[in-house]
Computed example of a mutant assay.
Amino acid sequence: MATNASESQYVTFGLDDECFAVPVEVVREILDHEDVFRIPHGPDYLLGLRDVRGQGVPVIDLRLRLGMSGMAKTTHTRVLVIDVPIAGRLLTLGLVADRVFEVASFQKDAVEGAPDIGVRWSSEYISGVVRRNGGFVVIIDLGRLFTGADVTSLVAGPQARSA
């Protein structure tokens, strides 16, 4: 799918009844959900580690990270394996989504700024919203979502590599 300079591509996915998106260039692959190796004393949103092509990848319950209720595994549950640039390194993570929809192109001028009120989740993790099919697609700012002291242990682990 070719795009021009006035549009960007995103992988769209669902959490509860909401539609979210991340830039397609950070998504390495999309996998079926599998049980993970639990890590004791990790943050509540860290489900554990999963082997992805010989690499131990931390799997994140994105619903919990966004302040929503925890995920419930279904036949549609997927894991988006992403590479997030943080502090000069690439952090590889698995994000659990209730379902993955498609790769969608959004016109850059159609992306609105993040709302400050009226949403159930913290707007500091939102880079923008797009009106689509009578609703909104929320574009997640992965750099803001995965920064701070609570993810320092993820960045320091063997899954991080120089960018």
Rank of each mutant, 00 (worst) to 15 (best):
M1S: 14
N4L: 15
S6D: 12
E7C: 08
Y10G: 10
T12C: 09
D16V: 05
D16Y: 06
F20A: 01
V24K: 05
E29C: 10
E29Y: 03
P40C: 08
H41S: 08
P43T: 11
P43I: 12
Y45K: 04
G48I: 08
V52T: 13
Q55G: 07
V57H: 05
P58V: 02
I60V: 04
R63K: 15
G67Y: 04
M68T: 04
S69R: 10
G70M: 07
A72P: 08
K73I: 15
T75H: 13
T77I: 05
R78N: 14
V79I: 14
V81A: 13
P85A: 13
I86S: 03
R89T: 02
L90H: 08
L90E: 05
L91K: 10
T92E: 04
T92V: 06
G94V: 06
L95W: 12
A97W: 00
A97P: 07
E102N: 05
V103I: 14
G113A: 14
A114T: 04
A114D: 04
A114H: 08
I117S: 09
I117P: 00
G118E: 05
W121R: 06
E124T: 11
V129G: 03
V130H: 10
R131M: 12
R132Y: 07
N133E: 15
G135L: 07
I139L: 14
D141P: 06
G143R: 14
G143F: 07
R144S: 04
L145A: 01
F146Y: 09
G148S: 07
G148K: 00
A149C: 10
A149L: 09
D150W: 02
D150A: 04
S153N: 07
L154W: 06
A156E: 11
P158V: 10
A160W: 05
R161T: 08
